[in-house]
Simulated assay, not measured.
Amino acid sequence: MPNDSPPRQLTFDLPFDPRYGREDFLVGDANEAAYGLIEAWPHWPDRVLVLTGPVGSGKSHLAAIWAERAHAWTVTAAAVTHDRVQHLASNGALVVEDIDRPEGRDEAALFHLLNLVRERGSPVLFTSGKPIDSLGITTPDLRSRLRLAPGVAIDAPDDALLRAVLVKLFVDRQLIVDLGVIEAVALRIDRSLGRAREVVAELDRDALGRGRRISRPLAVSVLRRMGLGEAAEDSEA
């Protein structure tokens, strides 16, 4: 019996490099305050700022925008070790990403870094996936310093921002889809930019493997395979 389904193509899971330019950042109600504070540099209320938001919310993108403006180095919190503190504190502005990740986090080194940059008047932007009080920091002085630093949070995106981000994610991958695909995805995922990235990446892989364009039925099928969209489908029935 002949098989009429299109042949599967060999796909390569090549790394996708997101664009982190200022012109690529989409502003909405969820991130307007954070974006405004980044744009306000160098007129910050303090030399230290803590930027919080869930995975995929745009923290790294905003940090990259500020790093370009402030000519800052960018390191992860795990890279702030005792032997590197003097070097990091002596190079001007600094971005310290992912202070919410306890793996490899040297609290004594981070506290020492904070003291040094304040002494030298250097600006530091910390990013975190959770509020400071939720990080389980056991060094009281470090916890106190971070809690006292001005902070700004990125909230979950509203519907308009989620749809705009979906369009951008498809365009970034040079994928052309119609509005039906955008609506199908937006209605079936939680309002998370991280989830939007996951879905677009999966649709890209699936469409490439099948040698087909991304249609609404294909999007719904992939979402169902990912365990997404049942509630939306029930409401449409």
Rank of each mutant, 00 (worst) to 15 (best):
G56R: 03
A184Q: 12
F170H: 08
L113G: 00
E198A: 13
E32N: 10
V165I: 14
D83E: 13
D106Q: 13
D29C: 12
R8L: 14
A72W: 03
H112D: 08
A67G: 11
L88C: 04
E183S: 10
D4E: 10
S221P: 03
W73A: 14
R47E: 04
V167D: 01
L203Q: 01
P7E: 09
S122D: 09
R163Q: 11
N91W: 05
S128P: 01
D190P: 11
R213P: 05
R210I: 10
L135R: 07
V80H: 03
N3E: 08
S122Y: 11
E107P: 00
A64M: 05
R84S: 07
D13L: 15
T138I: 14
R173V: 13
V124C: 03
S90T: 14
N91K: 12
R212I: 13
A160E: 08
L116A: 06
R224V: 09
D46Y: 14
K59T: 05
T74D: 01
V200Q: 00
N3W: 12
Q9N: 10
I65F: 01
R197P: 00
F126I: 05
L116F: 02
P140G: 04
L179H: 15
L175R: 15
L110K: 04
A64W: 00
V185F: 00
E32T: 13
P140M: 01
F16S: 10
A219G: 05
H112V: 09
S122T: 07
D13A: 13
V55Y: 04
K130T: 14
S5D: 10
A78S: 11
L125C: 08
A70W: 02
T74H: 01
W44E: 02
V185K: 04
R188H: 13
G58C: 13
I137E: 04
A89V: 07
V177E: 01
V177T: 10
I154Q: 05
I154G: 06
G180C: 06
V50C: 00
P2D: 11
A70E: 09
P102D: 11
N31E: 00
I176K: 15
L208Y: 01
P102R: 15
L228I: 07
H87R: 14
Y35G: 13
D206P: 04
I65N: 02
S60I: 05
A30S: 12
L187D: 09
Q174F: 11
A207K: 11
A237E: 06
L148K: 12
N115W: 07
L62G: 07
G53E: 02
V117Q: 03
D178S: 14
D206E: 08
T74R: 09
A78Q: 06
D24P: 02
D159N: 05
V124D: 00
V80D: 03
E68P: 02
V50G: 05
L203W: 03
P2C: 02
G21S: 11
K59C: 12
S215P: 03
L62M: 05
G28V: 15
A79T: 13
P45A: 06
E107S: 04
T74N: 00
Q174W: 08
P123H: 03
